[in-house]
């Protein structure tokens, strides 16, 4: 066994697979830029699959309780403002669009375009969270946050909640149905809260990316980071598309 054979220092590699120049962003353990890009892209997809399963637990819980306590879920969903919800959907779809445009700008090496798109995405993301804050504060005022202070009066006596009442004319619910609205709001806060948490993380990364992009990063042909972040952002968009349909639009007629 050739135990004492000459050892080539690692730094002199990678052994080129037909590449003459080795860009600075090529990590030492990859053979080529394509391999590196493919790898991180696939890893990102696998991460998104874990995210999907993470939300999967919540969707399962939602489906079970929605079927068990349908009337309570209808009454609960009437407390959500469909205008705010729709507006938020539009905001998020637009931010997905600007993000996709940002990836295109990075791919085609347009620096100012990339910065603009990232800033727009950033602003739209903040706008989404702003609207969410308005919605949350309404719930907090009405004591619709599950836990000790949960208040049933909007469901036991809908007339006491004139804003909602004049729109839907809900009938009073008996106590044993009304109290299940707490589960609806648990799921509402869990799902939108998890979603908002992902948004906050995403906005943080966006801020970092704007900073880097202004300094000229991401337009050298190495767009993996922008691309992967784009995947993450679109995934959040997809989650919201379902949340909107399931939480806001249960029964509006």
């Amino acid at each position: 066994m050739p135990n004492n054979q000459a050892i080539v220092p690692a730094a002199s590699e990678p052994a080129g697979a037909g590449h003459n120049e080795h860009p600075s962003y090529l990590l030492h353990h990859f053979q080529s830029v394509e391999q590196q890009a493919d790898t991180s892209n696939f890893a990102m997809w696998l991460f998104l699959l874990t995210e999907m399963m993470f939300f999967g637990g919540l969707f399962t819980a939602y489906l079970i309780y929605r079927n068990w306590y349908y009337l309570a879920f209808v009454a609960g969903s009437h407390q959500l403002n469909v205008v705010w919800g729709t507006l938020n959907t539009v905001v998020l779809i637009c931010s997905s669009f600007t993000m996709a445009m940002g990836v295109w700008c990075a791919e085609t090496r347009r620096r100012s375009g990339l910065v603009l798109c990232l800033i727009l995405t950033f602003i739209l993301g903040l706008g989404f969270l702003g609207i969410k804050t308005i919605e949350y504060s309404e719930k907090i005022e009405k004591h619709h946050v599950p836990g000790f202070h949960y208040n049933l009066s909007s469901f036991l006596d809908p007339a006491s909640d004139p804003e909602i009442f004049k729109e839907y004319h809900d009938k009073p619910l008996p106590l044993d149905i009304a109290r299940h609205t707490e589960l609806y709001f648990s799921l509402y806060f869990l799902m939108t809260g998890m979603h908002a948490l992902h948004m906050i993380i995403g906005i943080g990364i966006l801020g970092f990316m704007i900073f880097r992009a202004r300094a000229g990063a991401y337009i050298s042909g190495h767009v993996t980071f922008v691309e992967n972040f784009g995947l993450y952002w679109h995934f959040i968009d997809i989650v919201w598309i379902y949340l909107f349909a399931l939480l806001y639009l249960i029964s509006r007629h």
Partner: peptide
């Protein structure tokens, strides 16, 4: 991307309308 954006916005309008 623009085409998809409009398709998504149309879908949003459609689904809100359908829920009513």
């Amino acid at each position: 991307y623009v085409a998809i954006l409009f398709a998504l916005l149309a879908g949003t309008v459609l689904t809100v309308w359908a829920s009513f």
